[in-house]
């Protein structure tokens, strides 16, 4: 089972993702892709850690090449966030086609996991024309999100905390 969760900034994506994973079996892994650059990233990481406190996730910090992660069979994985991962692959690792690479890496993860919930973000919704590099990022993440949604069993958009189903059926734990 592969579930993709999208939505705007501070719209409750993580809370929905955690609810889905925590309604299932133990053996939960959290793949954190955000690099702790600067004060605001540290605050965001701290906030997410507090949200997960008591939920028995084992945290794996991996900023690129998530396909290499060694996971036990049939585990549950929360991957957060594809937006960061895409930026890391492009700007830290210099990958020229991050969408294709991440799609391959996520396919590898879905082969090992019972359930994979991936949180992504939307960056193409402000209509602003940015410098070339940034536009390449907007394009890559847009294409990647579309490709991931195509392979996902369920796609949910978090809208001010409300799970809006875009593909498949709403998981029972979110009723």
């Amino acid at each position: 089972m592969f579930i993709l969760i999208s939505g705007g900034c501070k719209n409750g994506k993580s809370a929905i993702a955690e609810k889905i994973i925590c309604s299932g079996n133990p053996g939960r892994f959290y793949i954190a892709t955000m690099q702790p650059f600067g004060n605001e990233a540290e605050i965001a990481i701290k906030r997410h850690r507090e949200m997960r406190a008591g939920t028995h996730f084992k945290t794996i910090e991996k900023y690129t090449d998530i396909g290499e992660i060694d996971l036990p069979d049939k585990c549950s994985v929360l991957l957060e966030c594809i937006g960061n991962l895409c930026a890391n692959e492009m700007f830290s690792a210099g990958c020229s086609s991050p969408d294709e690479k991440i799609l391959r890496d996520i396919k590898k993860l879905t082969e090992k996991t019972e359930i994979l919930v991936a949180v992504t973000s939307q960056v193409g919704g402000d209509g602003i024309i940015y410098p070339k590099e940034t536009m390449k990022y907007v394009e890559s993440l847009g294409r990647l999100n579309s490709a991931l949604a195509n392979t996902a069993d369920i796609v949910i958009e978090a809208v001010f905390g409300i799970p809006v189903i875009l593909k498949g059926e709403l998981p029972e734990c979110l009723y």
């Binding site: 960056v123 602003i128 990022y137 907007v138």
Partner: peptide, 8 residues
């Protein structure tokens, strides 16, 4: 208005 769907 929803405003959180753009570049940071």
């Amino acid at each position: 208005t929803e405003i959180g769907c753009g570049i940071i």
